[in-house]
């Protein structure tokens, strides 16, 4: 079966080619129908820009300068404005971290829900209203009929995110992009929202791209993981091997610096040293080299490509990907 989404060599540039920031650099990945891809990375890694560029929502001074995005057989980058608008919200939807800024504060949520159903879904006002009530019930909003007339500020953060999800899935999209959908929410509400996303995905059969900084969320939700650093995917593959046998030292570093409930006796975190630097110009070296514990001279001369390493379907962008576990082991023994 052909994948629903296939991104190749995507490049997004902010500012000039020499001095600007290459926010997304040669990013390639594919997504099957109904599959969940988790994109993880820290601030500035390019994960959100990747998500926005899929809907052609990059605004100036940013622009897509290369690559292709094939969605259901069509190239999104080649579409004119009218065509891409018919894709947005209907075939590909997106939800963001802060639902307050993405909902219109002066329209009732009923109006915001029926609008998309009428414009993109082609329903009559009466049908749209019935469907809007069903959608609110679907995302777990109590007494949905009564709440249609409420404004966004009447809702709590968790409830607003439910409304956003209801709007996003109103037209049964084939792909939902969720950018940090639970970051602003409390942990018990986060669990509720993730449950809703999971059950909706099953019901609608949509593919999901889950963009987050939280490794724990993707561990529970994603079929595949893409780890981003400095605008590039540095490791990608099925969820289990990426967590259990990571082949990129950055993935290892992320896992080691995360405090975790399942390791109560670990009294010392192992941070990644240094700071991330905005990726400027062409990558003629590994962007992670200045912070990497396994760095060798070759890392500063040559950018590693994303190549098969570890388990089947797993790829890593590291000159020493095949030897990462062994090198880390040696390093640890030396430290003791």
């Amino acid at each position: 079966m052909t994948p629903i989404l296939s991104v190749s060599d995507l490049k997004v540039q902010f500012g000039s080619a020499e001095n600007g920031v290459r926010a997304v650099d040669d990013v390639s990945f594919a997504l099957e129908r109904g599959e969940t891809l988790g994109i993880v990375g820290e601030s500035g890694s390019g994960k959100s820009v990747t998500g926005l560029s899929l809907l052609r929502l990059i605004s100036k001074p940013g622009r897509v300068i290369g690559g292709s995005i094939l969605f259901d057989g069509r190239d999104l980058l080649a579409m004119d404005e009218k065509e891409i608008r018919s894709v947005r919200g209907r075939e590909i939807s997106m939800i963001f971290q802060d639902p307050m800024t993405s909902l219109n504060p002066v329209l009732t949520i009923g109006r915001q829900l029926t609008e998309i159903l009428e414009v993109q879904g082609g329903l009559t006002p009466g049908q749209a209203r019935t469907r809007a009530v069903e959608l609110l019930a679907l995302v777990g909003i109590p007494s949905p009929e009564r709440r249609l007339g409420d404004y966004p500020h009447h809702f709590s953060g968790g409830m607003r995110q439910r409304v956003m999800i209801a709007i996003a899935v109103a037209c049964r999209p084939k792909l939902l992009i969720a950018d940090e959908p639970t970051t602003a929410l409390d942990v018990t509400i986060q669990a509720q929202i993730l449950d809703i996303l999971k059950s909706l995905q099953k019901e609608i059969g949509m593919a999901l791209i889950l963009i987050t900084h939280d490794l724990g969320i993707v561990a529970g939700m994603a079929d595949r993981i893409a780890v981003m650093y400095g605008g590039r995917i540095v490791e990608e593959g099925p969820t289990d091997p990426v967590f259990e046998d990571p082949r990129m030292p950055y993935t290892v570093g992320l896992l080691r610096s995360t405090p975790r409930l399942d390791r109560p006796e670990e009294r010392r975190l192992r941070p990644i040293r240094g700071l991330p630097v905005a990726p400027r110009g062409e990558a003629r070296f590994c962007r992670f080299a200045p912070r990497c514990d396994l760095v060798e001279p070759v890392c500063t001369r040559e950018a590693p490509q994303l190549e098969a390493a570890g388990a089947e379907g797993q790829r890593a962008a590291c000159h020493f990907a095949e030897r990462v576990p062994e090198l880390l082991h040696t390093q640890e023994e030396a430290a003791q």
Binding site: A191, I217, A219, G220, F243
Partner: peptide, 19 residues
């Protein structure tokens, strides 16, 4: 039970107490 843990096998096996 609601805190996600970066361990896929553990995550799949967990039972959440949903409030």
């Amino acid at each position: 039970s609601a805190v996600p843990i970066p361990n896929p096998k553990l995550e799949r096996a967990r039972r959440r107490i949903v409030l």
